[in-house]
Design a protein around this nucleic acid. Structure first.
Lengths: 204, 204, 204, 204
DNA sequence: GATGAATGAGCATTCATTCAT
DNA sequence: CATGAATGAATGCTCATTCAT
């Protein structure tokens, strides 16, 4: 989950626990993953896990924090970079798609977490969805998008999610970059982006 | 999921097990639901469950069969009813949205099932996604929709799914019928429906 | 377990329960056989068994009674038929061997029963072993056999038992009648029968 | 079954599980013995058993391996020690009798195991019976014994087994050493040992 | 930091037995 | 007589967690 390319020699045990847990949780769910499973992947024993975390729940929560913070920052950065609302939205959508395919475990984990756990309020503040929602609300008020912000969020997040799942199943191929462009276009078209730049590229 | 409309006095134990299991599985997942949980909801003991099903797995599989058959039939019917491709698509999308909000447990169950279980091939034949995919493929070849069929499927299913989740969280309110119309419009716009008939019936 | 040849149309359910239970108990043991197993073989449901027996234990005990009575009678008859002690012993050994191969389930049941259940005292009176023991005691006192009666019983019963097991495994073939004769000779020789009649027929 | 003679302070939990399981299995059979029973005797909880064995079946198989190896070695050693076939047979029979009374649980376990489980082929190679059978086959060919090897095995093993059972019931007393000699004599006489050496050492 | 034995609660499943029909 | 649903206690096994080493 380091995200940074480059060589390093040592990865702390805690980090390795995180990586193993993230992958297993994403694949088998929380109840379907045991402490022993995680320990086996890391190459330590069950008891050793408890040197780093005081419960399974803590691993789960720590991971979701990291994932939310990670994606949250990327989205914030993207939004900050855009010169106008249209560009901000475009960059945000792009970020979301890129994130899903670059860090599939994280993306899958995020989805599973929200499917089964009721996200505590304090976490919501940094929740990626909030950032997008804020962006869409502003865009809606400004008349930049045609649909209500909640719907814009549904379309964006939902489409990317399904895209990701279909890619996992092998129904579509992520290598297909032109397809990714098409995805973006469709999403933007669906939310009714009115900006000329967009409308030039995408036939409305 | 009883199938029969109208009033009835008696619901068989098996049916009550199905209803309880569907609800619990949808809410807590498969591993998060115990046989005891199901039995408690039904009002019988654990052992009695095994008079009707020979394993927990059998309940899971029986339920997904029912849900797939149910939604599959609704979609088939909807597609059959449409006079042309555009209308077929519209009716299918409408059916999906209606289904999600009318039978939330079923819809949620379907999503969870595909998230963790690899659907056996023979089940796929009736899988609702296949019906939509077939429809979108035909529409794409006929030039009725602008985006590739896989993408059309992602947008449709993904958006409805998110919509459903946001509704559950309370982010949007399903009572808002005009919003539902807006959803349909957005989806249709996203997949690039080109037919004029649509634009007449549905305010774009 | 009727033992009588001849045609009959109807076998009572209770009799069929007995036959099924005898076979299953002999093959899988008491704990390894369930009421459902028995019911399935008979072709009735579990509950129906309780019309005929009030517990599993009762089936077990009823069966052992029948088997003990059956073999006991055969042995008594054999002993009664012999004109002298030597002949009585010969006939008894013959009866035991014949019984083991003619009614393997009964013989196996008898062995298993005594391996795990402590035979109640009142049953002992009719216990086949008692008859043989009585015979050997008398023969020992009369100087007809060379070894102590307990040992004579061990040799006789033990050898037949092993013979039976080896036959089941396929190590020996019961069809081999000359072998059976050899068995008898060996047993008689082992217990040190001193009578001339015997020594004539059987090469010592 | 510890193998090591002399005093020791500590017996590993696994060894204690083995001892407890051996005893209980021998007494109540496999199905009649629960993991909880074993744990209770050892003084640990059920879960702890699974730290040492991954299933009840594994305990059963591990035990039979140990018993077979143990008795197998004793018999091999005995056979190796004998200077001629007659002496080898005598020593083997002696070993078997001694084993049965010295390690009653092991002996009983061996019998029960073969009564209900079909011994896998690879285990047979070391199976005690095979050693005796080999010995008897050779002796039969050499004309040292009068009866067929299979029958010799039946008599030997069967008699010892019954002797053991009668001792358990209290019908005979193992303390009676002269009786044991008598047993040996009878077995040897039954299989028709012809060698003079035997008749010298053992009073016929 | 790490090990691995142990705990104790829990889980899916089985089974003898009961009982309303 | 027979059915089959239901009970309730058990059974083999799992798992998060603790703890002595």
């Amino acid at each position: 989950m380091s995200g940074k390319a480059g060589t390093y020699r040592y990865v702390s045990t805690k980090e390795r626990i995180d990586m193993a847990a993230l992958h297993l949780f994403a694949e088998r769910g929380f109840k379907g993953t045991t402490i022993k499973d995680i320990a086996k992947v890391v190459g330590i024993t069950e008891g050793a896990i408890y040197r780093h975390y005081k419960s399974k729940e803590e691993i789960v929560e720590n991971l979701i924090d990291r994932v939310i913070k990670d994606l949250g920052k990327r989205l914030s950065d993207a939004v900050a970079k855009g010169k106008n609302l249209t560009e901000k939205i475009k960059l945000a959508v792009d970020t979301l798609i890129t994130y899903a395919f670059e860090k599939p475990d994280c993306f899958r984990y995020l989805n599973i977490y929200h499917l089964f756990k009721k996200s505590p309020k304090d976490k919501d503040r940094r929740f990626p969805g909030k950032i997008l929602m804020g962006l869409f609300k502003e865009a809606y008020r400004a008349g930049v998008i045609a649909v209500k912000p909640e719907l814009a969020l549904c379309i964006t997040v939902g489409t990317v999610e399904r895209l990701f799942i279909f890619n996992e199943i092998g129904l579509i191929s992520k290598g297909d970059r032109s397809f990714m462009g098409e995805v973006e276009d469709s999403i933007l078209r669906a939310i009714g982006i009115k900006n000329g730049v967009i409308s030039k590229n995408i036939a409305l």
